[in-house]
Computed example of a mutant assay.
Amino acid sequence: MRAFNFSAGPATLAEPVLRQAADEMLDWRGTGASVAELSHRGAEFMQVAAEAEADLRTLLSVPADYAVLFTTGGATLMQALLPLNFAAPGQAVDYVITGHWGKTALKQARHGVAAHVAASSEDTGFRDIPPPSEWRLSNDAAYVHVTANETIHGVEFRDVPEVGATPLVADFSSSIASEPVEVSRYAVLYGGAQKNLGPAGIAFAIVRRDLLEREGQPRAEILDLRAHAAKGSMLNTPPTWNWYLLGLSLKWMLGEGGVAEFARRNARKAELLYAAIDGSGGFYRNQVAPAARSRMNVPFSLHDSALDATFLSEAKASGLIGLKGHRALGGMRASLYNAMPEAGVQALAGFMADFARRHG
């Protein structure tokens, strides 16, 4: 029996996706070979790539004036590519920091550009979103960067503020496809796929085409997003197996009802888990401001950290894995991505209540 996997990423994949991949492992669509063995430039895999792009566009309602890229290197590489491609040498870029990954994005940007912290909630432990009235945006920034959902700190923008005419760029690694998003509000949406879209090893970028016309900074062709777009994300050999699994995941999500359906499911799952935490009488604690609580990643601590190892051990024995918190925070973390069924969250909530009764 499969465990309920609450890992933050690489994360749980939908069982139908894994079963189809297993069935097709040795012979994909009658080719006599695995999809991982086929040429990325052959007609068979080109169809996989085309279907994945079309399905992502359908799932997220991506407008025609946006390019869709599938890249290697994950979100962190994309964070380094953003200023190289979209900011002139020395031009300011604004970053709103709401957690660990916002800080990482800022660190990657501090090469050749004037990276500016427009707002940060670090002084209060990344437990809330900085009020928009306190954002100190530059007059001539190349873009404003936000992290839509902080995977480690469990802070999520429920509504990203307007930033005027400056292009808005967002890391959507851990919340993409979890609910409808108005793509046209953003100049770039990017992220790693290993949470809601597929396996680790492939990333996505949805880029408004006019940004691709920017000269940016001197860079090798392999670091030029214009070149990747021109070659259909096949400037070099892509991670074909990962791309194939991503495509299967997209088809599964569309078949389940798309982002509107997953928004409903994710709201129910998050409500169930936060109720288990808040209703525990202090045995479990989540310190994020309620209005900024993530639906995807729920960090929580036990009232006595000496119980952490016992909690994790007993949870694993109960078929609940991937609950250890990130080393930056400790404690626990449950990730509730699209492929996590509500039954898994119900099982976790029940276990938590029982554990509190026995160890409280």
Score class of each variant (00 low, 15 high):
residue 129 I to Q: 04
residue 104 T to N: 10
residue 41 R to L: 13
residue 234 M to K: 03
residue 17 V to K: 00
residue 251 K to W: 06
residue 319 G to H: 03
residue 121 S to W: 02
residue 91 Q to S: 09
residue 23 D to I: 08
residue 292 A to W: 11
residue 132 P to I: 02
residue 38 L to A: 11
residue 285 R to S: 04
residue 199 P to K: 00
residue 231 K to Q: 14
residue 82 L to S: 08
residue 301 S to R: 03
residue 337 Y to T: 10
residue 347 A to M: 06
residue 81 L to K: 11
residue 63 P to C: 13
residue 134 E to S: 14
residue 256 E to L: 01
residue 258 G to T: 04
residue 329 L to S: 00
residue 221 E to Y: 06
residue 260 A to M: 09
residue 128 D to F: 09
residue 91 Q to H: 06
residue 185 R to L: 07
residue 240 T to D: 05
residue 171 D to G: 08
residue 155 V to F: 12
residue 83 P to Q: 01
residue 274 Y to I: 10
residue 91 Q to T: 08
residue 112 G to V: 10
residue 12 T to L: 09
residue 359 H to F: 12
residue 185 R to H: 06
residue 142 A to W: 10
residue 85 N to K: 09
residue 230 A to L: 15
residue 120 S to F: 00
residue 135 W to Y: 14
residue 63 P to L: 13
residue 359 H to D: 11
residue 50 A to K: 08
residue 18 L to K: 10
residue 124 T to K: 00
residue 277 I to E: 00
residue 36 A to I: 09
residue 125 G to M: 05
residue 245 L to T: 04
residue 271 E to H: 00
residue 186 Y to N: 05
residue 110 R to W: 12
residue 82 L to H: 09
residue 291 A to W: 06
residue 59 L to Y: 03
residue 83 P to V: 01
residue 281 G to D: 03
residue 140 D to M: 05
residue 116 H to T: 03
residue 219 R to F: 05
residue 182 E to F: 13
residue 188 V to S: 07
residue 304 D to I: 03
residue 214 R to W: 15
residue 270 A to V: 06
residue 264 R to G: 13
residue 332 M to C: 14
residue 168 L to T: 12
residue 321 I to L: 11
residue 215 E to K: 05
residue 297 N to M: 01
residue 346 Q to L: 08
residue 81 L to V: 14
residue 178 S to F: 05
residue 35 V to K: 00
residue 53 E to A: 10
residue 207 V to D: 01
residue 292 A to F: 12
residue 33 A to N: 07
residue 101 W to Q: 07
residue 271 E to F: 01
residue 183 V to Y: 05
residue 329 L to Y: 00
residue 135 W to H: 13
residue 178 S to C: 10
residue 14 A to S: 11
residue 147 T to Y: 08
residue 109 A to L: 08
residue 337 Y to R: 14
residue 339 A to N: 12
residue 225 L to F: 14
residue 311 F to M: 14
residue 3 A to S: 11
residue 35 V to G: 02
residue 90 G to I: 07
residue 296 M to P: 00
residue 282 G to Y: 12
residue 82 L to V: 09
residue 335 S to N: 15
residue 327 R to N: 13
residue 143 Y to S: 02
residue 207 V to F: 04
residue 21 A to W: 12
residue 216 G to Q: 12
residue 11 A to M: 01
residue 41 R to V: 10
residue 241 W to K: 09
residue 126 F to G: 07
residue 24 E to T: 08
residue 269 K to S: 04
residue 260 A to Q: 14
residue 2 R to K: 08
residue 336 L to D: 00
residue 4 F to W: 15
residue 310 T to C: 13
residue 245 L to E: 08
residue 249 S to F: 06
residue 184 S to T: 15
residue 26 L to W: 15
residue 116 H to C: 01
residue 300 F to N: 09
residue 284 Y to N: 06
residue 18 L to D: 15
residue 334 A to W: 14
residue 205 A to F: 02
residue 93 V to R: 01
residue 343 A to M: 06
residue 277 I to T: 01
residue 333 R to H: 02
residue 22 A to D: 15
residue 107 K to F: 12
residue 135 W to R: 05
residue 162 E to T: 11
residue 58 T to C: 01
residue 201 G to Y: 05
residue 181 V to L: 04
residue 188 V to T: 04
residue 121 S to P: 09
residue 356 A to G: 04
